[in-house]
Nucleic acid binder design. Structure first.
Lengths: 194, 194
DNA sequence: TGTTGAACTCAACGGCGTTGAAGTAGGCGC
DNA sequence: GCGCCTACTTCAACGCCGTTGAGTTCAACA
């Protein structure tokens, strides 16, 4: 009897490596399918691990998601752009689907899972750290923080339309026109009063 | 025989009225808890009906949700405001938590359930019918539709920050300042080029 | 009155996140 | 080397989810 054992596709994973394997599989599957449709069982299977290990290593599916999303701060360097070019740079970046690839999926997953208070506060923190604080610190004039916050709101509006609603009509429009018009609106809150 | 029958709390629902009862309970529970956390069993129980009737009358939980959300067009009359006052009127309305009460919950439920293609397209349709089309029809100058679309994007940004992220920091700011600054940005895309 | 079909009930299915008990391996003192 | 102790892993099962199909009730019509 040959009993070749044929483990087909489930290699046993060296002992102790399950945590990292799960984290990697979760990053991929959460991005591809979102929080709800990436199941713990699928993530574990993709990592070659047991579903119960998700609870053992991370505590819950939600905690795993937060861990995955924790290291995504894609826009950090973008907002370092000089203030005069910031609005154009941001809108251009959002419209660049390729560059936005992973950040887009993470944003969508975060927003759609924002039922949960902890995920919602992570979303708020993400907005705060990536937009509000760095921009407010550089703004001159009155109400710098409020203006940075309204800037972030406008940016989230474009993200929502492009990445959540996936508005095809907007994509059919002239990209240059979108950039110049939306950037002009962004500049209104960036500029200090006369 | 009097047949007082007192069925404790589960009144039998007159035959034929289950559909309406489910629709009403669904409207309340979807708004209160969102799509995911309002379960079919809870909705049916609140309506005094059997869970299987949801499928019988509506086809699926998702179809029931779409039916509930179908008749929510809260902003229809708001965008009838004269163009000169439109931006201020919209921002003021969004900041008015009481007036926004039900529309706020429906918006949050829609966005968070936008995983599903049919719900996502309903969200797109909602943006289109309540903002883009009525405003584009009244705009003068070049690229009226694009400008209306960018107006809608900005509005969705404020909705997201206020109603999804539930940004407390923004609410601590001066409402008048928010209105004047965000409205100014909205006006940039509303106004025709010089 | 007998028939028919829409409305409804009920038990069950497979899949979900999670749980707790049982098993296993690897490092450390002896 | 031996045994233990702890961290890691496995497995079966729980309760809940949306959904399903077969069976039942009831009102309207011929």
């Amino acid at each position: 009897m040959q009993l070749a054992d044929a483990p087909s596709d489930r290699r046993p994973l060296r002992r102790g490596s399950a945590r990292a394997a799960i984290l990697g599989a979760a990053a991929r599957l959460f991005a591809e399918r979102g929080f709800t449709h990436a199941t713990v069982r699928d993530i574990a299977a993709a990592a070659g691990a047991d579903p119960a290990l998700v609870k053992y290593h991370f505590g819950s599916k939600e905690a795993l998601f937060l861990e995955v999303v924790q290291q995504h701060n894609e826009w950090r360097d973008l907002v370092e752009t000089p203030l005069e070019e910031l609005a154009v740079a941001v809108v251009t970046a959002l419209l660049d689907a390729d560059a936005a690839g992973r950040g887009r999926q993470v944003f969508a997953a975060l927003v759609r899972a924002s039922d949960s208070p902890s995920i919602r506060s992570r979303l708020a923190q993400s907005m705060e750290e990536q937009f509000v604080r760095p921009i407010a610190a550089r703004l001159e004039g009155a109400e710098a923080e409020l203006r940075a916050r309204l800037f972030a709101a406008q940016v989230h509006g474009l993200m929502t339309v492009l990445w959540l609603i996936d508005d095809q009509a907007l994509l059919r429009d002239d990209r240059a026109a979108i950039v110049s018009r939306y950037a002009a609106a962004l500049d209104v809150v960036l500029r200090a009063d006369d």
